[in-house]
């Protein structure tokens, strides 16, 4: 469990990061908190030729409220997210991420870029309709969370693009419910309900290749909570795995949806 050889660069600006990624010609990988990347490198399941360490890049570590949106820099640590009060839903979600050591190192940008469908922040991003800022050689572009996640551990970003931050609308009402086997584990199912600009959005993590919108359930908002929660379950197409059958996951998703909706007061 020792990683394969790689080159290591530690730029201090976004432009230098982008240049390093271009130079790596698709074989580069950004290192931020390293909480997902380093273990898979140790297992030699990831073998990037160049590690681009962005921890010395300035200006990416702020949480700032701008009207009804909170801007989160890519290098904001989960611990900081958990402790801030500008975005209570993000704080709640961040508290569910791993253990203290993981929250101290892991970053918001890293979690989004890693695109683990069971991770907390991608579900929050989809539920709130967050926008990700991606810097690239051709300048910045803004990608809606709904369009960002392409599959397990895959995004629609190019290999020479870098997430610099995300803008997360602050919901007027929200609910977060996750079920994990142990304290600190990735949840088997996470449901996030967020009312943003008058519209209720529901996202489900852990039951598909990407965080899923429960659109039929969203359309049924206003009906009894049990009915809406059941619709969340009906829309899913989970698969069975080590931790349980597809039916079990669907059942837990319905319950998490019920809890999230109830907690949101919807």
């Amino acid at each position: 469990m020792k990683c394969a050889p790689f080159e290591y660069v530690r730029p201090t600006s976004v432009d230098e990061v982008l240049a390093a990624l271009v130079a790596a010609d698709g074989e580069g990988k950004i290192l931020a908190g390293g909480q997902s990347l380093v273990p898979v490198m140790a297992l030699r399941m990831a073998r990037p030729a160049v590690i681009v360490d962005i921890n010395r890049v300035e200006g990416l570590a702020a949480v700032e409220r701008d009207g009804d949106t909170v801007h989160v820099g890519a290098l904001v640590r989960h611990r900081t997210l958990a402790e801030q009060s500008a975005h209570p839903l993000l704080a709640e979600a961040a508290r569910h991420i791993g253990h203290a050591a993981i929250r101290t190192r892991g970053t918001a940008g890293g979690s989004i870029a890693h695109a683990d469908p069971a991770a907390e922040l991608p579900v929050v991003a989809v539920a709130t309709g967050a926008t990700v800022t991606a810097a690239g050689a051709r300048g910045d572009r803004w990608v809606a969370a709904d369009d960002l996640f392409a599959g397990p551990l895959m995004t629609t970003l190019d290999a020479d693009e870098m997430i610099t931050g995300l803008d997360v609308p602050v919901p007027t009402r929200w609910g977060f419910a996750g079920f994990a086997r142990r304290h600190g584990d990735f949840a088997l199912v996470t449901v996030v309900v967020a009312e943003v600009r008058g519209q209720v959005r529901i996202a489900v993590g852990g039951v598909g290749a990407v965080p899923l919108r429960a659109r039929a359930a969203e359309a049924a908002i206003g009906e009894p909570v049990e009915r809406v929660a059941q619709l969340v379950g009906d829309e899913l197409n989970p698969t069975g795995d080590l931790h349980g059958s597809a039916e079990f996951r669907r059942g837990v998703a319905v319950e998490m949806a019920r809890r999230a909706l109830a907690s949101a007061g919807i």
Binding site: H243, G244, F248, G251
Partner: peptide
């Protein structure tokens, strides 16, 4: 006694 086993038994 995983949640899956217990959930299935409860059902």
């Amino acid at each position: 006694l995983s949640p899956s086993v217990v959930w299935t038994a409860a059902r």
